[in-house]
Simulated assay, not measured.
Amino acid sequence: MPPLGTAAYLPALPQAEAEVGTYIGSIQLTLTAFIIGMALGQLALGPLSDRLGRRPLLLAGIIAFVAASAGLAFAPTLEVMIALRVVQGFAAASGMVLGRAIVSDVASGEQAAKTMSIIMAAGVVVPALAPLLGAGVLAFAQWRTIFLVLAGLGALVGVWVLLRVPETLPREARGAGRPARPAGNGAVQSSLPRFILFVLIVALSFLSMYAYVSAAPLVFQQVHGFSPTGYAVAGAVLSFVMGGVGFLGTRILGRSTRFGVITPMRAVTLGAGMLFVGAALVALAVMLGAAAGWLIAALAVAVAPIPILQGSASALAMDVSPFKAGASSAIIGATMSAFGAAAPPIVGMLGADARPMAAVMGGAAVLALVAALVAGRRASAPVDAAAR
């Protein structure tokens, strides 16, 4: 729901601007409203699900998403659209924040990391496909029909959840305090410092990715002379690289190699290292004024590990968190949103070429690698008796 709600609507912005915009660029406020709604939804629904359960709030969120999407198809003014987009974003957040919490309820360690990697991979592939969905709708209908399509897709998700997703948080585990995990499920000692480190790793990798996303239109179209179609194709290729590596990560985790078993912690360290190498290659390509093909190759190296890095770090954060799963998921999601929202203004303030993108990606990659190394060292250190 979140990536479709954001990206499927993008091809319709010019038509929507012409019909309901009150001034130039006003329709962009509907995108901002959706993102604000998602951030608020994660902060509210995550902790609330620790007390009320996952399934009721997930179903309520899907119903609200369907209703808001249908309402947007008939919104008469920009003000009504903005209000409904906030509601739509708030509702869509239920899938993000409760999805992570449900995974944490039923899995930990390697299995949770595999599942989180699939979630993260889908989160980068769907935005690449969503504009194609929107463009396909516009080929046969007017722009408001996109919201009816989103309502229909949301209804299908609701039926699937109703039939296939049970309640994963027992009544006895609800309320204040984190419930103890059963012995032998791969859980680890709760630790606030390690939780913070893993959350930072997720957020910094998200910052690195959004530095590329926010700068890509300018870099490809103005610096390298790509057409809008060429830019869209390049972006889709990089998204599918991320998605492919994310899905591949589910096959690699737990495998024995000549370097040892690929544990979630090792996947985080290796992913952060690859992100750093890729960011260095991007910086080198930018400094040397390399052709667009070399820059795309460097970006592919940089963004490829992001889903498995985020998936493994998210799973580890949920495992070591001193908070309950819903609250932990809300903290992860809100921090990601904050770091992602910071990328466009930071890149914009640093200049109007490819160098700001390379600088922000590089800085975020360095910090993510440092956090991964510190987290890995803390994981290998013996637990102090007093901490127990």
Rank of each mutant, 00 (worst) to 15 (best):
Y9P: 11
Y9S: 09
L10D: 14
L10I: 13
L13G: 05
A18S: 12
L29D: 09
T32P: 06
A33C: 12
I36W: 02
Q42W: 05
L43T: 03
A44P: 05
L45N: 07
G53T: 12
R54F: 11
P56Y: 15
I62M: 05
A70V: 10
A70L: 14
F74Y: 09
I82T: 11
I82R: 09
F90P: 06
A92P: 07
G95P: 07
R100N: 14
R100K: 12
A101W: 12
S104K: 13
S104N: 14
D105Q: 09
S108N: 14
G109H: 08
A112H: 10
A128V: 13
A130Q: 05
P131W: 04
A139T: 00
R144E: 07
I146C: 01
I146P: 03
L150S: 04
G154Q: 03
V157F: 10
V159W: 00
A173E: 13
G175K: 05
G177Q: 03
L200W: 02
I201W: 05
L207N: 11
L207W: 08
A211L: 13
A215V: 14
L218I: 13
V219K: 14
Q221E: 15
P228C: 15
P228S: 07
V233Y: 15
G235H: 12
V241E: 08
M242F: 09
G244E: 12
G244W: 08
V245Q: 05
V245H: 07
G246W: 12
L253W: 10
V261Y: 08
V261G: 07
T263S: 15
M265Y: 06
A267G: 08
T269Y: 01
L270E: 02
G278A: 12
L284P: 01
M287D: 10
A290R: 13
A291M: 11
A292P: 10
A297Q: 03
A298K: 10
A298R: 04
L309I: 02
S312M: 03
A317Q: 10
D319M: 07
P322L: 11
A325H: 11
A327I: 04
A330I: 03
I331Y: 08
T335W: 01
T335M: 07
M336C: 04
A338W: 00
A342Q: 10
P344C: 07
P345R: 02
I346Q: 03
D353T: 06
M357Y: 03
G362M: 05
G363M: 01
A368T: 05
L369K: 04
V370D: 00
V374H: 06
G376I: 03
G376A: 01
A381E: 09
P382Q: 01
V383P: 00
A385L: 11
A386Y: 04
